[in-house]
């Protein structure tokens, strides 16, 4: 498979456990992820709030770099990066004036690029469930996570506004993947796609405590012992806001790739478990 890897800023910083576990899991499944050389920031939700076309241009540059690697797919684990790359590609394909503006300007500023196609954008969850397939993953499970009660939490931007692979409000792909690990998946968790507050929660404490507090409380009420996430910002908010809630009873917040990695028999260190504030009871 020709997979280009777009880490984004978080996976090199606060989300480094996500990078470690994604690379470890992909390699255990025989998939190679090649990091896009000299990738730039996707602009997150901030760039869009300042300059709309430039925010597309940021992702366009990354997609062009991946195209030069002859990648068929770009894999972006962070939900915001995923959405930005996806949106830029969609706009490039659907909107001729935008496409021409981007291409012309890129060439004019000294880039060599034939305005041909761009690689498709996928999230690691899509690669695992759509390209690899659950059956193949099932064969590789070395250490079933029997009795581990996992709450799948998808957050927003992976499933919205584009829902090509799943339902925008009640998605199931991660549930199905986690079931393969042998864990008990709390699929009826009703807040699966309720927002953690993203960067708003990052700078405003009251909404951060309120939104994340509700997510944790409901996960506990449903009997969950850990939450599996697909996004570094969700992981960060859910983890750090527990520090301030009263009556907390800390709940580990893992990346879904860490949960899968444990079931594949990978070591805690390879999965970046040491970067977690609250560790799960099951670890190699």
């Amino acid at each position: 498979m020709n997979l280009a890897y777009y880490p984004g800023c978080s996976l090199k910083g606060t989300g480094k456990a996500y990078e470690k576990s994604t690379l470890a899991v992909f390699s255990a499944l025989g998939l190679e992820l090649q990091e896009i050389p000299d990738w730039n920031c996707c602009g997150a939700t901030a760039y869009m709030a300042v300059d709309a076309l430039a925010s597309k241009a940021l992702s366009f540059r990354n997609l062009v770099l991946a195209q030069k690697m002859e990648a068929k797919w770009v894999v972006a684990p962070c939900s915001a990066c995923y959405l930005n790359l996806f949106k830029a590609r969609k706009e490039y394909l659907d909107n001729k004036p935008t496409r021409e503006k981007l291409c012309r300007t890129l060439k004019k500023t000294g880039w060599e690029y034939e305005c041909s196609g761009l690689p498709e954008v996928l999230h690691p969850l899509h690669v695992l469930t759509e390209l690899v397939g659950l059956e193949k993953i099932r064969e590789k499970i070395r250490r079933p996570l029997k009795g581990l009660r996992v709450v799948p939490y998808y957050g927003c931007q992976l499933v919205r506004p584009y829902d090509g692979y799943d339902d925008p409000v009640h998605p199931v792909k991660m549930d199905l993947l986690l079931e393969v690990t042998g864990a008990e998946v709390i699929s009826d968790y009703p807040l699966k796609t309720r927002c953690c507050g993203a960067s708003v929660a990052g700078v405003l404490e009251e909404p951060g405590l309120n939104l994340n507090g509700a997510l944790i409380k409901e996960a506990k009420r449903r009997g969950g012992e850990l939450i599996a996430t697909v996004c570094p910002l969700c992981q960060f908010n859910l983890e750090t806001y527990q520090r301030k809630t009263e009556n907390a009873g800390r709940m580990p917040i893992l990346y879904f790739t860490q949960v899968l990695g444990l079931a594949l028999g990978l070591e805690g260190k390879a999965l970046g478990m040491e970067h977690l504030l609250y560790r799960p009871r099951l670890e190699v």
């Binding site: 800023c9 090199k12 910083g13 606060t14 480094k16 000299d38 990738w39 730039n40 300059d51 709309a52 076309l53 430039a54 241009a57 940021l58 540059r61 503006k101 981007l102 012309r104 300007t105 890129l106 004019k108 500023t109 000294g110 880039w111 040491e274 970067h275 977690l276 504030l277």
Partner: peptide, 29 residues
Amino acid sequence: LTRRLSLKKEKISRPSQLRKFLEAIKEVG
């Protein structure tokens, strides 16, 4: 404590080339 804090400034190899592109985009936008 969880070794996630880094104060090292992240940047791409030639930020000036990206700036040039973004400035030109601003004009056409």
